[in-house]
């Protein structure tokens, strides 16, 4: 299952990763003996039906959760060796996040939301945050609060914030999951463009076959295991994928972009 890494050392190296949860009497294996790695600037989607362990895998890779066994080496550091505060520091310096539900702090303006990761480090970042907001086309909404922005705009603020610390790797969890098709497509293009611009590796969990088709590599999960790991070129066009494979995950195409309140 190992993917060939480039000449540079991988940004993310996952080795025999397993995560089990106890649910009453039963022991559930959510992530089962997964091994893969991601090189600098490499883009990779994780596909799979609900409950296949995608988000759990993402959480483990980003150091948000501890594995039952196996290891994750992120940017050369074994996450198992780091305590919670060192993990936080690593995330702050080397990792970016994009969330399905945007996760903007409701009490901060767009600009302030983007500045948070730098301010946590005590670095002034106003100009750089402003520049990023311009890149995502929101310089005129910089002083608006999340509740005053549309879903697409909120996600663009999320993108600006994800790149504000020039991360080595970006984890995206269903970044288009709450957006309509058109807006989603714009966000994906922006995401990939910034990803290329910053040379950031990208691991995106998604149901969106269009998005996964735009990443270089696709991992498919089922029952906590990787069932396939291939380049996106080798994936069949969406219309040829058997419905039952992703039936549980396919979203209602009529989803709408949430209106500003």
């Amino acid at each position: 299952m190992n993917s060939p890494a480039g000449p540079d050392p991988p940004v993310l190296q996952v080795n025999r990763l397993t995560k089990r949860y106890r649910s009453g009497e039963r022991l559930l294996t959510v992530v089962d003996d997964i091994t893969f790695s991601l090189g600098p600037g490499e883009t990779c989607s994780v596909l799979g039906p609900s409950g296949s362990g995608k988000t759990t895998l993402l959480g483990l890779c980003a150091g948000l959760d501890r594995p039952t066994s196996g290891s994750v080496v992120l940017n050369g550091q074994n996450l198992g060796d780091l305590d919670q505060d060192r993990l936080a520091e690593l995330r702050n310096r080397s990792v970016g996040f994009v969330f399905q539900t945007f996760q903007l702090v409701p009490t901060l303006t767009a600009l302030e939301n983007v500045m948070v990761p730098l301010e946590l480090r005590g670095k002034p970042g106003r100009t750089w945050a402003w520049e990023l907001l311009s890149r995502v086309g929101l310089e005129d909404r910089a002083h608006h609060y999340p509740v005053q922005l549309s879903g697409g705009e909120q996600q663009r603020v999320g993108l600006a914030r994800a790149f504000v610390n020039r991360p080595r790797i970006l984890f995206a969890d269903e970044p288009t999951g709450n957006l309509d098709a058109d807006t989603g497509e714009k966000v994906i293009d922006l995401l990939l463009e910034m990803n290329r611009g910053f040379g950031t590796a990208l691991l995106v969990v998604t149901h969106d076959l269009e998005l996964s088709g735009k990443t270089r590599r696709i991992l498919t999960l089922k029952g906590g295991k990787i069932t396939s790991d291939r380049d996106s070129d080798s994936i069949r066009p969406p219309e040829q994928i058997p419905q039952q494979t992703l039936s549980g995950d396919l979203r209602d195409s009529s989803r709408t972009e949430s209106e500003p309140s």
Binding site: Q84, L90, R91, N92, V116, P117, L120
Partner: peptide
Amino acid sequence: LLRCLGAKAPQ
């Protein structure tokens, strides 16, 4: 979210 963005627990 702050923790996710790299804030330490004391922060």
